[in-house]
Design a protein around this nucleic acid. Structure first.
Lengths: 126, 126
DNA sequence: TCTTATTTACTACAACAGTAGTAGACACGT
DNA sequence: ACGTGTCTACTACTGTTGTAGTAAATAAGA
């Protein structure tokens, strides 16, 4: 079962997904400047992600551990969307309405959705 | 500024939005059986929602306070969607993709989105 | 080999979230 | 007016999240 990731954990995973296997130091330095936590803060988060089985120690370079992701970006993202959906009792309509009203669901997004839908419809028939 | 609401706080607000002004007892008894917390748990949450200015004491019946919502369901829902959007760096496409792939964005939902979009486009021109 | 900078492993702690108990106030029926 | 049950106001405790410090191990350069 996919572990639940918090905001900061997700930010850190995001760096791993971009960079691939990395050390704590590399991750910390790659975090956006304004939000950058102390080295040991990142270290703590990495350890927690390891306990949650979202990361694992892949190898060592010098005395530094190199960690790598065990969960994919897509899987983590899907979980986020599922959670939101839960809040809305599984009903899409209010979500879509909010997205449209806040002007962030563009006509292009909708067309893209239609394309994806058709692709899935075809796949179902096969 | 709209306060941030947690999972249980949202569940409780949901009952208020359905019922209108209510006592702690009424809310507690209206919560779904499997998840129903103790009376004092609900009471604590209601107090916290009051501190967060999501609820206020409207009046008294006997010695019981009647609370009423200060934030609307739509506003709270919009905040949830905005938060999710933040996780995705503001880009819609991955969210839509997940929704479609999990089979929860139906063709009807997309048509609904198109209708809403057209309505908004018209409004922009006015 | 000695020194030093880096890394690890561990500890700490405040805020928040979820959970609930208890003591005392109070309203209501008789 | 009394007793009883409900409600309030407070307190408490656990787990999680975000934050970081410190001591000891260790790699790597001089």
């Amino acid at each position: 079962m996919l572990p639940k990731l918090t905001r900061l954990e997700l930010e850190i995973m995001e760096v791993f997904w971009r960079r691939g296997p990395s050390s704590v130091r590399e991750i910390q330095e790659d975090l956006p400047g304004k939000t950058r936590p102390a080295y040991t803060t990142v270290q703590t988060m990495v350890y927690r992600l390891e306990r949650k089985r979202a990361l694992r120690r892949a190898r060592k370079i010098g005395n530094a551990h190199i960690f790598e992701p065990l969960v994919s970006r897509v899987a983590a993202h899907r979980r986020l969307v599922d959670e939101l959906l839960g809040f809305f009792g599984g009903r899409m309509q209010p979500i879509v309405a909010h997205l449209v009203e806040s002007g962030r669901l563009t006509p292009e997004d909708v067309q893209e959705a239609e394309r994806t839908l058709r692709k899935f419809a075809r796949k179902d028939k096969e």
